[in-house]
Design a protein around this nucleic acid. Sequence first.
DNA 1: TTGTATGCGTTATCAA
DNA 2: TTGATAACGCATACAA
Lengths: 349, 349
Amino acid sequence: MKFEAVTIKDIARALGLSPSTVSRALRGSYEISPETKQLVQDYARKFNYQPNPIAKSLKESRSRAIGVIVPEIVNYFFSQAINGIDAAAYQRGYHVIVSQSHESFEREVETTQLLVSRRVDGLLVSLSSQTDRVEHFKALQEKGLPIVFFDRVSEEMDTCKVKSDNFQGSYQATAHLAGAGCRRIAHLTTAAWLSITRERLAGYRKALEDNGLPFEEAYVKYFNFGAMNPSETDRVVGELLKHPERPDAIFSATDRLTSACLASLRAAGVRVPHDMALVGFTNLTVAHLLDPALTCVTQPAFEMGQAATEMLIGLIESKRPVTQFETRVLPTTLWTRASSRRDAPPVEP
Amino acid sequence: MKFEAVTIKDIARALGLSPSTVSRALRGSYEISPETKQLVQDYARKFNYQPNPIAKSLKESRSRAIGVIVPEIVNYFFSQAINGIDAAAYQRGYHVIVSQSHESFEREVETTQLLVSRRVDGLLVSLSSQTDRVEHFKALQEKGLPIVFFDRVSEEMDTCKVKSDNFQGSYQATAHLAGAGCRRIAHLTTAAWLSITRERLAGYRKALEDNGLPFEEAYVKYFNFGAMNPSETDRVVGELLKHPERPDAIFSATDRLTSACLASLRAAGVRVPHDMALVGFTNLTVAHLLDPALTCVTQPAFEMGQAATEMLIGLIESKRPVTQFETRVLPTTLWTRASSRRDAPPVEP
DNA sequence: TTGTATGCGTTATCAA
DNA sequence: TTGATAACGCATACAA
């Protein structure tokens, strides 16, 4: 099956002009007579001429495509971020090729290679939870490929980054639990080496400290594979429940972990918030409809995607090599709901 | 910023061969001597030669890109479908350009144009809820562009389609409500002209009939804009509640409508399921965590995306024009939960 | 077995 | 003001 389109050559032949004249006329060049311009442009419109972006890419050695690598598309935070990326990219005349690492280091490396072989003009990356080294990105950056990180950024690379205020979001959530009367606040989080993990842990610790609560190593649980496996959260939540000094609250650090944690608590017959308060980072749009309504920290996902894209296009289109890289930090929002309301009477499940 | 890559010419120059020899050696052509092949391939590997897909596209007049148009990315059904599309496309060596119509006819037309001007090899489309005519797709199909519809398909076009068994899913859901003792089952759905709307409505009507329940026009409510606006569902749910013969159940036909409906019911102080049972189509992964746990019909979104992609690539790569178009129908699944359990004692909100 | 020439669609350079 | 030519990277018909 073929799909024929009008080319500059076709127009030139039809109008008895040379391709270069047509090309210039189409671009409105000053060196073409008004009459010829008019003639060419009318003809182009009439036959719906569309410049071939592939030919243009070849000529300009740029694809006007940006590659996006996220851990998973099926995740509210990332799909909202992709929405923002999409909006910003289309506005600037770029298109977006999305790919997923599926939380695997190997697949992240593979898909990076694939995008590079596709000649994307730049890369927008949120690291997989297995990624504890970034040589594959460093090498590309050194060869001149612009890379911007968002959300799960690499601290080992000097480049543009967009993240949310993880420390602040974590601090607020933990302080909120302390304010609600919780004294033993556990923390479920992702891979220890990720930036978001460290920053959220720091906010959690500072809030404990400021509220006169001790930090307990045993209350912090790390998940390395995006907590895809419900039985894994069941096991870890079970550990917390069996702890001699059982926590009275859980603060969970990522989207899927939070809902998985709620599921595990309910499966274990734990009443939330009476037996265990729960607060988590999540961009789930139905958090207020959960049982119980979930107190959560949301990230401005759309804006983060948008900001990252604008920074990336800035790098791509910069005339001279960029050496000063900006990091933008966007605020999170705490939504207070029933899952952290300790003064409510207990409800039997 | 530039990003230099090794080309066939570079290899030819370095090895004292002609570009055509190198090209053939890289592709393992039989007309090249084993020694030369080895030499070239070793050199290519060593310097990490990557064929330039843009040049190849220009040569072959195909982009190996497929365009996807969905109403919204931020929607579990569509993000899961995109996941399936992604998986199938990458496996066949295609990449995916995703764009959104945002439930607007104008934006659907625009983004279609954009994808075509990007020279995608084919289109995967799920119609916007405002789309009641498909001339923009027909014209492209007539010019030879392969198009496959999924989920929200067009009945006016003869092409490949992938959908779920909307009639069956709807029938099961409605019959389930009837079996739970509901006698006045309302139906919230999308634009009247969409295929999914008609098919789901038909399943609903047949189930009413088979259960000896009358069909009431006033119990069917249509939403034209994807029910993005909570106040709109509040208003419509309010109408149902004020109806002299107030419905005792709602069957909702789409993802976002279902959660919006639950929110409206709760805002109105209606106890679910005691005052009003609720069942809906939704691919929300936390349906079991909602309050109440939501009885729902899920669609095999990943598989639908995958199937549609394979059909599209089949059309793209077909040697001769295809005239026989397949429609694949995949089964839905009913998950029975608390929101439709009429025998449960009422719970005060 | 290898090399030369050409074209995919576009634009920049140089010539007329 | 317009036209001829070359080049982007690759594949291939045709020559040698």
